[in-house]
Design a protein around this nucleic acid. Structure first.
Length: 351
DNA sequence: AGTTCCTATGAGACACAGGC
DNA sequence: GCCTGTGTCTCATAGGAACT
């Protein structure tokens, strides 16, 4: 399948809100796609697919009673072919059963054997109110398709060429009592991670909702809030702003709570914010482990280097003092320092 | 916090009966 | 008289408890 699009009369910039950045982020969240981009200045960018795995189609799921409004019910009543309130609610909403219908009837006092087309606005409102007081199973999660840890990693490696990546896909959770969602996070360090400001790389937070990059309203977004609220010093990042890091967060839901009509920032629902923090903490912890190991290896190498440069001098002087021939120490020194280097390598290979 | 097991419950299949 | 909704039964599964 190939889709070709032409745009005209739009301003073009390489800024964070620009088209190029939008495509770059789309590619990370959609490594199964291939995009060729001809920009207005005559440059041609080719983003090849990093993965052959095509995401599965989401299964259609019925709306959950907690997510339905009085207006939805009226619309449903007008278009249903069912002949009773009860059976209509049962077959058009998930997690509804005859037991729940009975409970609803008791709570509202409405005769649920009435014809759907006779539904009054007040009745619909009453039903919605009653739903909020009732207990329901969480909605099915088969409608949610996360990108997956492996796919995010492939996307980040292809686009950012980082020296380290870590990803996590959390288990489905619900917010506002019954709306299911999944949070995924990834972190990339080094390489082309972060955004280039002058000749310095600064951290960037890439926000996504259902694989679509969010490029505006960063300040008020739950993702920004969640990521910035972490104590990054605990993960070996002294200054998050000025680190070569890209942080990826994707919120998957059939009903992402956007703050604005522009669908550009995720509302900080407590449950969603919590999951964003959890997910980011997991990947940050993995990065911390890697950075610690890297630092240790560097120190070890430096120590070996000092050893190598001083030992010959000491041996020479010692031989002079002892008035003896200088012994052949080369081979011995090599094995000692090389063993140290190998140990570092071996350790980092275990991870 | 994650894992595993058990149980209550919703979803789906099927037969029946009411309504147009 | 036929179509389609409704009631009943069974099975899979989400959710909770208990444990690691």
């Amino acid at each position: 399948v190939c889709i070709e699009l032409h745009f005209k009369d739009v301003s073009y910039s390489l800024s964070e809100q620009g088209a190029y950045e939008y495509i770059r982020r789309t590619m990370i969240a959609n490594p199964h796609a291939r995009i060729v981009f001809n920009d207005p200045t005559g440059n041609r960018y080719v983003f090849n697919r990093a993965s052959d795995v095509i995401p599965p189609m989401p299964k259609e799921v019925l709306p959950h009673p907690w997510g339905v409004t009085a207006d939805d019910l009226i619309f449903m009543a007008k278009h249903t072919d069912k002949r009773r309130f009860g059976s209509m609610l049962k077959s058009n909403l998930s997690r509804m059963s005859s037991m729940k219908i009975k409970e609803l009837e008791e709570l509202t006092g409405i005769d649920l054997n009435k014809r759907p087309k006779d539904m009054k606005w007040e009745e619909a409102e009453q039903i919605v109110e009653a739903f909020k007081k009732m207990k329901f199973m969480s909605p099915p999660t088969s409608g949610l398709i996360p990108i997956g840890e492996e796919q995010i990693e492939k996307g980040m490696k292809e686009i950012l060429q980082p020296e380290f990546t870590a990803t996590v896909t959390r288990k489905p959770k619900t917010y506002r009592g019954g709306i299911a969602f999944i949070v995924e996070a990834g972190i990339a360090y080094g390489g082309n991670s972060g955004r280039l400001v002058g000749d310095q790389r600064k951290a960037e937070i890439m926000r996504f909702a259902n694989r679509v990059p969010l490029t505006f309203d960063a300040g008020s977004c739950a993702i920004t809030e969640g990521v910035k609220s972490l104590d990054w010093k605990r993960y070996g990042i002294r200054d998050l702003e000025n680190a070569p890091i890209s942080i990826f967060v994707n919120v998957v839901s059939t009903n992402v709570p956007y703050l604005s009509t522009g669908k550009q920032s995720v509302s900080p629902e407590p449950e969603i914010l919590g999951e964003i923090r959890q997910a980011t903490m997991i990947v940050a912890r993995k990065l911390y482990k890697y950075l610690r190991k890297k630092k240790a290896a560097k120190e070890e190498a430096q120590r070996a280097k000092i050893f190598e440069s001083y030992v010959p001098v000491i041996i020479k002087q010692a031989a002079l003092l002892a008035e003896r021939e200088e012994p052949d120490y080369r081979e011995l020194l090599d094995t000692v320092t090389r063993r140290a280097k190998l140990e570092i390598l071996g350790e980092s290979l275990n991870e």
